[in-house]
Design a protein around this nucleic acid. Structure first.
Lengths: 159, 159
DNA sequence: TATATGTTGACTTTTTTTGACCAAGGCGTA
DNA sequence: TACGCCTTGGTCAAAAAAAGTCAACATATA
């Protein structure tokens, strides 16, 4: 059984597919009605599935004739892509955040499944060595993970 | 006597066999119930039997409608290659040898160009940290390089 | 007997759903 | 123009439903 959030998120994705434009406009109230939920559920869907980190920008307006506009960010070229990716990894990244990022990048087709597997093996390797071999504190391991991830992503973006 | 962990692990493998898809989705709670154990036992099974090193990627979600998705990564043919690959990397490998090996693997179509690039970035990263950050002697760096490379290749070759 | 592997449960964190209350824009009317 | 009123969307917090972590304890294996 699939969550309502996923159903609504998938529906919005089909809107993009159907319109083959990089931007769609919708009414929060209508969507909530269509899926039989409270309006604020729509905000939750947008927050959790259509964030800038996931490649979307949102504009909205309240009042009569209000709307919600969802724009899909497309990377014009790899340079921009690289910068964006670099920003996604800050100066320190937890294991969980790294994993989430990898899932998102894989789902967006930026890395292949094989590449993700490879990266996860490598991150685990470094984590283990930092912990067991050098007894590094958690924060140091987070910054090292961020460094490694950044290097990997930057180099892949250029490839 | 067969441990519960083995029983559950085998069961998950049959799920893959039955569905002949490379990915299955399950509920931790349900599985724990089915085998009459605590939920965290499932985490142990996954950690010990379905790691990236063993060729699996796991994606999971907590909260309402949570799930655990296990993906089996299948790699380019090369069955006997797996053991062979491991032998290729001894207990210590120089930077040059590692590079030569990667070139050869790419030429034989066992890794893609991007994957080779990725691996080289990762090896360089580890080399630099070993040298600059921890002031490791050359031999130690060579063994660590071998360890990392072996892990990478074994996980990639895992069918 | 040591060490590695497996089992358990208490506690933590994350995700989803829901609803009450807040804020802003447009329109009609005094 | 100014003031309400209706229409929309936004925020926040609580509750519920999973899954994750960690460390203690147990069992198996070398």
């Amino acid at each position: 059984m699939s969550s309502l959030t996923k159903v609504i998120g998938d529906y919005i994705v089909t809107l993009f597919d159907d319109s083959d434009k990089s931007e769609i406009v919708l009414r929060r109230k209508d969507l909530a009605e269509k899926f039989g939920c409270v309006p604020s559920q729509i905000n939750y869907v947008l927050r959790s599935r259509f964030s800038p980190e996931q490649g979307f920008l949102i504009q909205s307006q309240r009042g009569g004739h209000g709307y919600i506009r969802i724009m899909q960010i497309r990377f014009a070229d790899c340079d921009e892509c690289a910068e964006h990716l670099e920003d996604l990894v800050g100066s320190a990244v937890s294991e969980q955040d790294a994993k989430r990022l990898m899932v998102s990048l894989q789902e967006r087709g930026i890395v292949t499944t094989r590449e993700r597997l490879l990266i996860e093996v490598v991150l685990r390797n470094q984590e283990e060595q930092g912990r067991v071999l050098f007894d590094l504190p958690p924060y140091k391991r987070d910054t090292m993970r961020a460094d490694l991830l950044r290097r990997i992503l930057v180099s892949l973006a250029m490839a």
